[in-house]
Amino acid sequence: MKSVVTTVIAAADAAGRFPSTSDLESVQGSIQRAAARLEAAEKLGANLDRVAGEAYDACIKKYPYLNNPGEANSTDTFKAKCARDIKHYMRLIQYSLIVGGTGPLDEWGIAGQREVYRALSLPTAPYVEALSFARNRGCTPRDMSAQALTEYNALLDYAINSLS
């Protein structure tokens, strides 16, 4: 699992050296930003079901054509499953906030996912739309501090960008 710390260690190991001053400086930089990340992770973790559910509900409401009768999403079924997938991405976003890098999203949510969506002709639009809603909904200081929201939004952008 890639993070700032593991990347630094892997590089030091490849060179067979002890952690250098600049290695420790980059770890320190990551630790300084960690408070904001952890705050966002804590808030998201405590509200994951609600955030994911709202994102999808809003997407359904916002795009009435998502409720076209007779189609895959005409029942609560598609909604529930799609909400679950959104929740999956939200969980990976929380993990990425924790490790301070996009490793969890990359390894468990994105690498290969684009290929699979294309190969099976699966729609990405509901995910993109729901994550975009979450992206525009976060509010400071109501939901979290400004720095925390910046970290959170950056990962939502990353997920939207990588899935679309």
């Binding site: 795009y63 189609e71 729609p123 639009a125």
Partner: peptide
């Protein structure tokens, strides 16, 4: 091609 999920959006 599997087209089960193509017509999600009821747009003309």
């Amino acid at each position: 091609m599997d087209k089960r999920f193509f017509n999600l959006f009821n747009l003309t």
